[in-house]
Amino acid sequence: MASNSHPARRPTVTDVARAAGVSVATAGRVLGGYGKVGEEMRVTVQEAADRLGYSPNVVARSMRSGNTHSIGFVGADISNPFFATAMRGICDVAREEGYEAILMNSDDRLETERNAVRVLLDKQIEGIVVAPTSVTDVEHLKRAQEQGVPVVLLDRHIPMLDTDSVGIDNEAAAREAVEHLLELGHRRIGLLASVDPEESPELVSPPGSRKLIVHGVARPSIERIRGYISALGGYRIPPRRRDLRYSPIGDIAQAHQQAFALLGQRPRPTAVFAADNVTTQGLFTAARAHGLSVPGDLSIVGFDDLDWTTLVEPAVTVVAQDPLAAGRQAAQRLFLRIKGDTDPAEQIVLATRLIVRGSTGPVSPSAAGMPATD
């Protein structure tokens, strides 16, 4: 038998006024937070609103006031601890400003990111922090700016976009990590990196040179590969293509598979730099699967100081960055723009540090004696 029941109607200001025994105008002033109302009357109206389960129509209110007191964050992969922690920083700042943050996950897919930005704009948000999937296709971000919505970039800098960005010097951070291994005597050093399959790095040798140059868009992974090659170049060591392995962004299974293949080579590297937290995890598990002693058989340097890197034995040497500070800085820049700051766009570069732990050590005599081949 068909039911005659209907979904409960959302309580209105009129309903609250009737329940409180006051005029609609008085209820509107209390619930809208404007005008003068006595404390006793304010309490009466608020109690009535609570009893009825009244909540304001944010969209309607935003049309009247011109703002929603909300910002958006489009993260590349919120399951990644870096973006999860950065999100916490953004939400903390938003709360301090009396705003709410709406989270969207792009899954590092451009079309998903475009849709996320469209949804946020439809919700009348006042600003967006985004970790862009592409550093070349940014028309959707430009459109947001053209609509008067400020945009701040997290973890990426896009020269063609006139906006603030917060990130690190990826090339310098990677160079310091690999130089640490070189100073320990390692000369055959592998690299693992997560890359976008559609924007994979291209290693080319200039005519008449054994050097390799990395071609690719300025994503963090590409910049870290450049840092790796730069460090080797400082010791006059030509990188070998066979020692550079890539896996799709965020794919831990592929990261493990690529690491396992790298460590199965003969000769294998005596040390490996993993250029992000996903490949760091894949590398550590692959070393265990091969039965390698760390750092006796293999030295490991990873990226991001995650909890697990200090809970394993040995603890992992890592390049540490501060995603909480990055999120806070990005949100703070965004609120400056929301409040009307018109200063030129700023590229904020946060410091990193190399934390040396037990996973790196001098190259062992047996490993150093292995013949090197391309």
Rank of each mutant, 00 (worst) to 15 (best):
A177E: 00
P11N: 11
T309V: 13
Q347F: 06
L232F: 10
E346S: 02
A261N: 15
A287S: 13
E40K: 04
R357E: 07
R88S: 11
R95W: 03
Q265F: 03
P267C: 12
L161N: 01
A144F: 04
S23C: 03
E97R: 15
L263M: 04
G327V: 04
N80P: 00
E97M: 13
R357A: 01
V151M: 08
H186A: 05
D164N: 05
G282E: 01
P344I: 01
A367D: 14
D162Q: 04
V37F: 00
A368V: 06
A274F: 11
P295R: 08
A372P: 06
D374A: 15
D155M: 02
A17F: 05
D307N: 11
L311F: 12
V151Q: 07
A231G: 07
G167D: 11
M370K: 07
L306D: 13
V319L: 05
G291I: 09
V119A: 14
E113Y: 00
Q321F: 00
L334V: 03
I348E: 13
F273I: 01
A345S: 15
G233W: 01
N170E: 10
V312P: 01
H140Q: 13
V59G: 06
P220V: 01
A289N: 13
S165V: 00
G89C: 06
R224A: 04
S23A: 08
D77A: 12
D243Q: 07
A351H: 15
A49L: 04
D155V: 00
V119G: 03
L110E: 13
L324I: 12
G208L: 06
V178W: 11
D341F: 02
A274D: 05
I222M: 10
G28M: 11
